[in-house]
Every structure is written in C-alpha cells, then in structure tokens.
Amino acid sequence: MVAHTADIGVRIHGGDMEELLVNAAHALYSILLRATDLTERVERVVTVDSSDEETLLVDWLNELIYLFDAERLAFSRFQIEQLTECRLQARCFGERTDTARHEVLRDVKAATYHMAHIHRATDGYTAQVILDV
C-alpha cells in the first residue's frame, strides 16, 4: 500500500510485465474482497488497447473494476494470451461473487493515471497505481 490522502495506492512487483499485470489484478481483488475461496466457474476474455505500458496497466484494472461493479465478477487466475506494449488480451477465470460467501470490503471507483508508474530493474518490474475509493 502507498500512502495517499484521498485514496489507496498499491505497489506491485512482477518478474516480467505479464506477472506484473497478473499481480496487479490480485492486488485489486485483495482490496475489493476478502477472497480466499474464489472458484473458477466463469471464464471471460478481457482485451485492452492503450497508448503505452502505464496506461495499459491502469486500463486493465479499470476493466476488472467495471466487471466487478457491473457484473460482480471476480477472477482468481489469468492466462495472458497476448501482450505488447499497447495491447493485452487475458483469459480470466473466476466467479460471480455472492455476499453469502464473499465479503466485499469496499467499492473502488476507478484506477487513476495519477502517479501511475512502471519501473524496470534487473530483477523485474515494480509499478504503482492509485485507486479512487
């Protein structure tokens, strides 16, 4: 977590860009849900086209936020089918959350571009994203 007065910031690590994007999704669900037992009943292909890697990361999270708010979908496993600097296609496995089994912790309005940053180092990638909650 990164301190931000209004909102919640997350810092994510990944060995490569693919892992970074998957970990960002897991970080998002850890904020949205106390999700320990998400099953894989639903499969959904999510495609994002953006102008660069940072916007790709933010736009990817916004796709997942939309699916959670509109359809109550949460995913626990991801297969990255296509990844370039500006395009991501991921097959996502999860389920429609059910308040009887999944405790929803908070609403997230959106992932923001403010201070969104990806840093490459020798041991992989680190990124930061601020979520408006």
């Binding site: 102008s51 736009d59 916004n62 708010d69 309005k109 959106a110 571009y113 408006d132």
Partner: peptide, 15 residues
Amino acid sequence: GFGHQVCTDHLRVME
C-alpha cells in the same frame, strides 16, 4: 457507478 464509468470512459478518450 454511473458517474465513475463516465469519468473512466472519457479520461481514456482525453488521454
């Protein structure tokens, strides 16, 4: 969520 999505959609366009 309606307003949140309007902002998200149009920020992408503005970007």
